[in-house]
Design a protein around this nucleic acid. Sequence first.
DNA 1: TTTAAAACTTGATATAGATCAAGTAATCGC
DNA 2: GCGATTACTTGATCTATATCAAGTTTTAAA
Lengths: 193, 193
Amino acid sequence: MIKELENLRKKIFAKVSFSDKEWEDFSSKWRPKIFHKNDFMIKAGEIEKYFYYVEKGVLRAYHIKDGEEICVGFTYDGDFSGAYDSLLTKKPTQFYIQAIVDSSLYAIHRDELNAMYDQYKSVERWGRLFNEELLLGKGLREVAILSFSAEERYRRLMTQSPHCLQIIPQKYLASYLAMTPETFSRLRKKVKL
Amino acid sequence: MIKELENLRKKIFAKVSFSDKEWEDFSSKWRPKIFHKNDFMIKAGEIEKYFYYVEKGVLRAYHIKDGEEICVGFTYDGDFSGAYDSLLTKKPTQFYIQAIVDSSLYAIHRDELNAMYDQYKSVERWGRLFNEELLLGKGLREVAILSFSAEERYRRLMTQSPHCLQIIPQKYLASYLAMTPETFSRLRKKVKL
DNA sequence: TTTAAAACTTGATATAGATCAAGTAATCGC
DNA sequence: GCGATTACTTGATCTATATCAAGTTTTAAA
């Protein structure tokens, strides 16, 4: 068992327990990977080959529409990352994923992950539960975008992730909340929580 | 093997093949269920106990914000349905799901579905792949809502699902596209495809 | 450290789409 | 089939947020 992967182990075991043998095999497939600030994990048009675990760091995912960057999410310490749509479909992704700070990750190759799914029912179980969690998150975000005003979206972000403002440039947060940097700035002055 | 469930079988087998024994067991857990036009499958505040397959019919899912219905999706023949968020979390759903036309479905109880996940790796596999498919759909919708104008969203719907207009009242489609019925109506006149 | 670039703020103006209002057409219950 | 309810259309405004523009502050490179 690789000592370094202890955080990943805890993360996964929160959902499913692997046997010692399963974990030994599964964990042996992950390789450390470093992305320095502003490095790209992947760019639009490429096909994702890896599934990542963020040991330490922050990344943002965005796509470009009419020359404008539209931010769809951030990953922090303890999250999984990567262009998951492309990993699943084997088609080119439309997303860019970039490190916002120096980030230290572990990566497993798509083929090895799929081999693990084939081999172990517990990995398959974890995969299902992991997908369910992502799905619930997307559902909440969908509702948030559809039914809240810019001010409400701002308030909710500040309540739910108050310290993101210390880590992530405002213009990215603005884009994530589907508003301009100007509107974000005005809300920051106006809304005192 | 229950003859009636042939469509469900095809749907599932498109992703994963079950053995005869697995399918016999799995398929035996589903019960037919009828929802007449305007019947509710579930209402906000309730906890979802079933996972549904739509044999024939159309349903819409919506939630209510400030007294206003906000439509988040439709299910047609051959889709799965239900308040999936609540099924997974066992917490009350925030969604209403209502039959738009008389609809004929099959339902499996959450506990039986979970028992199937426990018992068969192939069911677990199907669950993972099913969740992945939903996730990809949500991802596309997120991008559509965030980065397209009302007119673009209208055009895309009409291109991708041209006949939904014959089945689903406009005001629901308008809400699904995050615009008012008035805007939808004006776009209908303006946009000739 | 200086300076250039990038990020953020603030004000003035523009606009997509909402809201309000009133009419017409479709649908539904009896 | 007929009146009533509900859906849709169309026009006149209104408003939240975008856009444009010109600062100021922060960051980073040399």
